Deep mutational scan, measured.
Amino acid sequence: ATVGSICDLNLKIPEINSSDMSAHVTSPSGRVTEAEIVPMGKNSHCVRFVPQEMGVHTVSVKYRGQHVTGSPFQFTVG
């Protein structure tokens, strides 16, 4: 992922509605921003955001307030 470019995290989660999901990204400096959740068809969801700084980011994806399997996810920008 690169700073200022759209970053997509694709998840396969069976039998949940994306409208019941939420996602937030925490940057290396601790800034928390909301991420967009895009339905991608049956059981597939895309978490979309634009990182604003380099370094390790943490993406928390929740369904009805509970982390989904594997969340929070970490990835490096830059």
Results as ranks from 00 to 15, higher is better:
F73I: 03
N43H: 02
Q52E: 11
V3I: 14
Q66Y: 05
N17S: 11
G65E: 14
H24S: 13
C46R: 14
S44F: 03
I6N: 04
Q66V: 09
T26V: 07
G65F: 05
V25T: 13
T26I: 12
G65S: 12
Q52N: 14
R31M: 08
K42S: 07
P39Q: 09
V56R: 09
V68H: 13
H24R: 09
R48M: 00
S60V: 11
T69Y: 07
C7N: 00
K62M: 14
T58D: 10
C7L: 04
S29F: 04
G41D: 10
G55L: 01
H45M: 09
G4T: 01
V61W: 00
T76L: 08
I6S: 06
G70R: 10
S71P: 02
S19F: 09
S29P: 04
G65K: 10
V3C: 04
T2A: 03
V32A: 10
M54D: 15
F49T: 13
P51D: 01
N17H: 07
C7K: 00
E53D: 15
G4D: 04
T33I: 14
K42H: 08
T2R: 10
E15K: 06
H45L: 09
G78A: 05
G55D: 11
T76H: 08
A1V: 06
H67R: 07
T2H: 02
G30D: 10
V3A: 02
V59I: 13
V68C: 04
G4H: 03
G4V: 00
V68F: 04
K42G: 08
G70C: 10
M54T: 03
V56H: 11
V25H: 12
M40T: 15
H57N: 14
G41I: 05
S60F: 07
H24M: 13
S18Y: 04
K42I: 05
P14G: 05
Q66G: 13
H67V: 05
C46L: 00
S71W: 01
S60L: 08
C7W: 07
S71Q: 04
A1W: 14
K12W: 08
P14E: 05
T69N: 04
S44I: 01
Q66R: 11
I6K: 03
T58N: 14
F49Y: 03
H57K: 01
S5V: 02
A1P: 05
S71K: 04
E53L: 08
V56D: 13
F75E: 11
P72S: 00
S44T: 10
N43Q: 11
V3P: 02
S22F: 08
E53A: 07
R48W: 01
T2Q: 09
Y63L: 11
S5P: 01
D20N: 13
C7R: 00
V77C: 08
E34A: 11
P39W: 02
P39C: 10
E34D: 13
M40Q: 15
A23P: 15
G4F: 06
R31D: 15
K42M: 05
T33P: 11
V25G: 06
E34T: 11
M40H: 12
P39R: 07
Y63C: 14
K62P: 00
E53G: 06
I6D: 01
G70F: 00
C7M: 06
Q66L: 08
R64T: 13
G65C: 14
T76A: 11
R31T: 13
V56E: 14
I13L: 09
V61R: 01
T76G: 10
H67G: 14
T2N: 02
Q66E: 13
E34V: 12
G70K: 13
Q66I: 07
T58W: 14
S18P: 06
R31K: 14
V77F: 02
N17D: 10
F73P: 02
H24N: 09
A1R: 04
S18N: 06
V50W: 08
F49G: 00
S27T: 06
N17Q: 09
I16W: 03
H45E: 05
V61T: 05
T2E: 08
Q66P: 05
M54P: 15
T26K: 09
G65V: 09
E34R: 11
G4C: 00
H24P: 02
C46S: 15
R31F: 11
G4Q: 01
K62F: 15
V56Q: 12
V25I: 09
H67S: 11
P39N: 11
S18G: 04
V61H: 05
I16M: 09
I16E: 03
K62S: 14
T58I: 13
S29R: 05
H57Y: 08
S60G: 11
H45T: 15
H67E: 12
I16N: 05
V38R: 15
T76P: 15
V47I: 06
H24K: 10
V56F: 09
R48Y: 00
G4Y: 02
T33G: 10
H67T: 07
H57A: 15
T58C: 11
I13G: 01
G65Y: 14
E15R: 06
P39H: 12
T33H: 07
G65R: 10
E53V: 13
T26F: 12
G41V: 08
F49A: 03
V59D: 00
S18K: 06
Y63M: 13
Q52H: 12
V25Y: 08
G65D: 13
P72R: 05
T58V: 13
T69D: 13
G70D: 15
M54N: 14
N43D: 15
C7P: 00
F73R: 03
G41A: 08
V47W: 00
V68R: 02
F73M: 02
R64C: 09
F75Y: 11
P51M: 02
V59T: 02
V32G: 11
H45N: 06
G65H: 08
G30S: 15
V77S: 07
E15C: 07
F73E: 04
P72W: 00
S71F: 02
H67I: 04
T58M: 15
T58S: 12
P51L: 01
V32K: 09
V56K: 10
H45Q: 15
M40K: 15
P39L: 04
I37N: 05
G78W: 01
P51A: 11
M54E: 15
C46K: 15
S60Y: 09
G4S: 00
R31W: 11
P39G: 13
M40Y: 06
N43G: 15
N43P: 14
C46T: 15
H24Y: 13
R64L: 11
D8G: 13
M40E: 15
M54K: 13
T69H: 05
C46P: 06
I13Y: 00
P51H: 05
R31I: 10
N43S: 12
V61C: 05
G41S: 08
T26C: 10
K62I: 07
V47P: 05
G4E: 02
Y63V: 15
P72G: 05
H67N: 10
K62W: 12
R48V: 00
T69L: 05
R48T: 01
A23H: 00
R48Q: 07
V25C: 09
